[in-house]
Design a protein around this nucleic acid. Structure first.
Lengths: 225, 225
DNA sequence: TTTCGTAATACTGCATACAGTATGATTCGG
DNA sequence: CCGAATCATACTGTATGCAGTATTACGAAA
């Protein structure tokens, strides 16, 4: 028998005690995508640890996770540095993303549930709202969430993982690349076409639009590299 | 000016002082692919650390790297467990690998240098030699090296990284799946076709053969899942 | 003034110690 | 004899300390 009645369960779920390392890892990812820790910067363990209010151990372990994800590089006896992305790295990553999202598009249209597609549409509506309010950070996060949600629709966990891994390294550049009114408007228009293709369950069309979106992304970020 | 003449450079290169964590991480990957640490097993830090002759700290940091790579999962307050692969996980991963290797095939044939292709052919010859000697472990490692080398030919670092990441999780199953003479012979034949397509620089054909190879892989490993 | 050498400093890599939590055994009640 | 509660054990999560190495600052020589 449950210990509390379900009406009393508001906030009565199990206390999530995420290990400090994971909390720190999540925070580090945000700091990197927002450029607060810039690419190429060394990570000073004592300084950053003090700033975050944690000791060196959980910080070090968080950094090791990010190293496994490819977000930072470990230089022997010199600690960790945030991975720097060249123009070629960006083009390479986008090429990989095209391959992954093409597969994801077909899977999403073939396997996605109606509720799942509706959820993506909801995310899109929320994103348009943040666009109207010119809230760039919230827009950006919803944007990423939409792409992840489309990939998730296919039900391929490995695909979702690989997509997230590649995506995470480009987050910072895409974040700063979206600055500029006309670029932003263009990206929004492409997103509308995505949603339309998804709701029509036209996998080939969705793949085409996603690849076009990624090509345009390369143009948009070209001058910040 | 160099400090020593090049003829004296045999073994005079800089002493590689790989951090203990990386050494341990590499060892753990091998232990997992060979099944010495089986899928689903919890990693006991003190026991394994004693066995490897290292303290808990470098071992923990190595495990965190593998967690970032997706090879192990971290369960709060219960440590790390080796990722278990279901039949669906295997199929999903192979689908992703098909997308990645299709891209890699076209890149390799378009961008690969003649020397690079020759190196792959050399690896193939060495692998055939190990096949003739029925040295399964050496064969397996050369097999993986060939696939990695083909992907590397394209010069897309992100693609190589993603391929390696997805591949690493399947290594154990592919390792035990290759047991059996007729399966092994079939895989060898497919590899010969790969090399032929690569040397002809026929990207479409290479992609086709690689995808076929992966489809066959699914059949070969089906009964060990 | 510039450059090389040297010493001081700061930071990483590793080990160990302690606290909190899960796990298993043991005992008590039914 | 079986189930539940309690206690002991073992293991993880975090903090701290120490040793080794890179970095920087400073001074001497050209």
């Amino acid at each position: 028998m449950a210990l509390v009645r379900s009406e009393e369960m508001e906030g009565a779920g199990p206390i999530i005690r995420r290990p400090l390392q994971e909390e720190v890892a999540a925070r580090l990812r945000d700091l990197i995508t927002q450029g607060i820790i810039p690419a190429g910067a060394r990570i000073n363990e004592v300084a950053l640890g003090t700033q975050l209010g944690v000791s060196r151990t959980p910080l070090r372990e968080a950094v090791r996770m990010l190293a496994g994800e490819g977000l930072v590089e470990l230089v022997p006896a010199r600690g960790a540095v945030v991975r720097r992305m060249s123009a070629k790295d960006m083009a390479d990553s986008l090429a990989v993303l095209k391959a992954l999202e093409s597969l994801a598009a077909r899977l999403a249209c073939a396997e996605g549930t109606a509720e799942g597609i509706a959820r993506v549409a909801t995310l899109h509506a929320a994103m348009m709202e943040r666009y109207a309010a010119r809230d760039r950070l919230a827009y950006f996060k919803l944007n990423q969430a939409i792409h992840s949600a489309i990939v998730a629709l296919g039900g391929n966990a490995t695909l979702a993982w690989a997509h997230e891994a590649v995506q995470s390294r480009m987050k910072h550049i895409r974040f700063i690349g979206n600055a500029g009114e006309e670029k932003w408007a263009g990206a929004v228009a492409e997103h509308a076409a995505m949603i339309a293709a998804l709701q029509a369950r036209d996998g080939e069309e969705l793949a085409r639009v996603l690849c076009l979106h990624l090509d345009r992304t390369m143009e948009r970020v070209r001058d910040v590299l």
